[in-house]
Amino acid sequence: MAKPRDDRAWLLVLPVVALVAFSALIPVMTVVNYSVQDSFGNNEFFWNGTGWFKELLDPSTDLGGRFFDALWRTLLFSALCLLIEIPLGIGVALSMPRQGWGVSASLVVLALPLLIPWNVVGTIWQVFARRDIGLLGAAVNGLGVDYNYAQDPLDAWITVVAMDVWHWTSLVALLCYAGLRSIPDAYYQAARVDGAGAWAVFRAIQLPKMQRVLTIAVLLRFMDSFMIYTEPFVVTGGGPGNATTFLSIDLVKIALGQFDLGKAAAMSIVYNLIVLAVCWVFFATTTRRESEAAR
């Protein structure tokens, strides 16, 4: 049954629009405003047109080189996170109990990392991975591997990715678990009658049923890993050198550290457009699939 058309519904949406417009549109306009101006301080601004954008998108300039380095690092980080967290999350969801006391217990434990403030997540991994006072750092070094995330770029990357896996795989697992629970028992019984193996059950029943929640999971995980700031900032501070300086960290350095408003604003806009473009593609494909399924 189609929803009735009624433009008075706008009245119900108005408070949300007003509030989000106040909190989002005004800042966005400020950013756009800065991105086309230059300043020598003292609140004196003058027109710079698309100058910042040209500099930003030209890898041969200082700013452009810095931007593209951070962009590739962030993309690599997002890709690694998705590649590890999605399969691992599915695996964990498949091994969760479906009834009994184990359900509540594993749900509570799984959800725990999600409710820890992000800088505390950073702190936890900082004290866990340090070679002098951390269990992980000391154990790895005790095994004869030279591991020091504060000095070696590769170690820093391993630490930051492991931290993100620790922090967010639960989200993927909980989403998949929700999808799995919606499968009626009759499907499994039919599969048993047909003599289907575990892999066949997974491919033919479980994976298709998890598709919708997996889309949400991939979307959320891409967005949040692409925007990550706090956790690596606490653990590595973007170092060693610039090895873990992701886009957000670089942006905050330029905006609040150096107060280069024009550069930071132009970078904000390009950054935001990248996230929006990816998410729009995702959103469009899922809604199309849903409307096709509804037909």
């Binding site: 519904a9 989000v20 950054y271 996230v275 959103f283």
Partner: peptide
């Protein structure tokens, strides 16, 4: 209900969830 611009409005709302907080800080 369906109403004028509902789908666009919904995506605009969601797009705010996608904006990096670092963009908004300043």
């Amino acid at each position: 209900y369906r109403f004028l611009g509902d789908k666009h409005l919904f995506f605009w709302l969601l797009s705010n969830r996608m904006a990096p907080p670092a963009v908004f800080a300043l």
